[in-house]
């Protein structure tokens, strides 16, 4: 895989992201992994199904990387998101960011995952014991009517 931003149907190895950002100028590599949680507000998830608009999703992940480079300057970023059926504890997304100093690597990783949750065309379908549903905006506090999500709409989720 020669891309730094990609969608995969295979299990994620976070080492693949780390390898892409390790470099001489970096004093910090921060990683974030999003994993499949079993219980949400007492409701048991059996498994998840992710779908993506793959070419656009990869472009939008790259855009997030570009935004990070603009905000934090010297940063290298790699992001992979998995699609298809994922079991409890599977890694859905892995992010690695390298920067000269640690504060920027932490902040930029956080920025990346929040931006993914607001604007990358990837969807999650929950399969519960008693049903299934494609989840939308999980906080239901943003109207998407005819508008492009802005950088200001960062959510804490």
């Amino acid at each position: 895989m020669d891309k730094n931003y990609w969608i995969t149907k295979e299990p994620i190895n976070p080492g693949d992201c780390i390898d892409k950002v390790v470099r001489n100028e970096a004093g910090a590599v921060n990683t974030f992994m999003g994993t499949v949680r079993e219980f949400t507000k007492g409701k048991r998830t059996l498994f998840l199904e992710y779908q993506a608009y793959v070419p656009m999703a990869e472009k939008k992940l790259e855009q997030i990387g570009d935004e990070i480079k603009e905000k934090w300057g010297n940063a290298e970023i790699a992001i992979v998101h998995r699609i298809g059926r994922l079991e409890i504890t599977d890694i859905a997304v892995a992010i690695a960011v390298s920067t000269p100093h640690r504060a920027d690597a932490f902040d930029a990783s956080r920025y990346a995952i929040e931006r993914i949750k607001e604007m990358v065309p990837i969807w999650k379908k929950e399969h519960w014991e008693d049903g299934e549903k494609w989840l939308g905006d999980q906080k239901e506090n943003i109207s998407y009517e005819a508008k492009i999500p802005s950088k200001e709409e960062m959510r804490d989720d």
């Binding site: 999003g34 949750k117 990358v120 065309p121 990837i122 494609w134 939308g136 905006d137």
Partner: peptide, 10 residues
């Protein structure tokens, strides 16, 4: 033209 329902990746 793609219609993109509210996203839920991550």
């Amino acid at each position: 033209v793609a219609f993109i329902p509210p996203v839920s990746g991550g």
